[in-house]
Amino acid sequence: MTPKVIFLVGAAGSGKSTVGKLISSHLKFSYLDKDVICNRFTGKLLETQGISPNERDGCEFYQTEVMPLEYETLLEIAADNVRNGISVILDAPFLGYFSDEKYIQKLKEKYSWEDSTPLVLEVTVNSEVLLKRIKNRNIKRDDWKIANWDTFLESLKSRKCLWSNVEIKQFDNSEEEIDEDKLFEIISINSR
């Protein structure tokens, strides 16, 4: 079977992790969360520069030096799985890469993913639910988002995934409970 690479994208607090873990548990895909893989190292790297380990948004050192390393690490781990015939779910915002129309083609070439099937699943929620979830998760690195809410929302709205040669689907995750049938219908993969 051709391995699938699901790019699970969306705002912090949209429920990407919950959706990704659900898909992974039903389909036995490898679930790779950028935050779980990289956060401890990222915090230490920021501290070596005299920067708070929780500072991401608005931090030039993070954006230009650390974030690319996080994504390279995530993608290298995914590539190992795909080369072994294992489908993967990549849980990361990928927002900084949305404007690169050839991003998927570049990844396929770099990581030898020619035989894989990519899919972008954008997890969305309305702004009220998003604010509530971000506040409820009570993560220090979200302080900037809450303090600059309108700016944060505008930055999300301005970033659309422009990747070519990949199917892009959306799943509205605003409800309290995930509609599993709808989710698996959207991604066109039988979970049963």
Results as ranks from 00 to 15, higher is better:
L27P: 02
I37N: 04
Q49C: 10
V36E: 15
L27K: 13
D33C: 05
F41E: 09
N54E: 14
F41D: 09
N39I: 04
F29W: 05
K28G: 06
P53R: 11
L46W: 03
L22R: 08
L32W: 03
Y31N: 00
G50L: 09
C38A: 10
K28D: 12
V36S: 14
D57G: 08
L45W: 07
I23S: 02
T48M: 10
R40C: 08
R40P: 03
F41A: 15
F41M: 14
T42H: 08
D35S: 11
H26Y: 11
G43F: 05
F29M: 05
D57N: 15
S25H: 14
S25P: 03
S30R: 10
E47K: 11
L45R: 11
F41K: 11
N39Q: 13
T42P: 03
S24V: 00
G43T: 08
N54C: 04
S25W: 04
L22W: 04
K28I: 04
K44H: 10
R40I: 05
K34C: 04
N54G: 07
Y31P: 00
C38E: 08
S25M: 07
T42D: 07
R56K: 14
G43A: 12
D35W: 05
E55W: 06
S24Q: 11
I23P: 00
D35L: 06
S25K: 14
I23T: 01
L46Q: 09
S24N: 05
I51Y: 13
K28M: 04
F41H: 10
S52A: 13
L27F: 09
P53L: 06
R40H: 12
N39P: 02
N54F: 11
K44T: 08
K34Y: 07
G50Q: 12
T42V: 15
R40W: 05
D57S: 11
L32K: 01
S24Y: 01
V36R: 10
K34M: 08
F29I: 00
L32H: 02
D33W: 02
L45I: 09
D35T: 05
T48L: 08
P53F: 11
K34T: 02
L22H: 08
Y31K: 00
I23G: 01
L32T: 00
N39D: 15
H26D: 09
K28W: 05
R56L: 10
S24M: 01
K44E: 14
N39C: 07
E55R: 12
R40G: 07
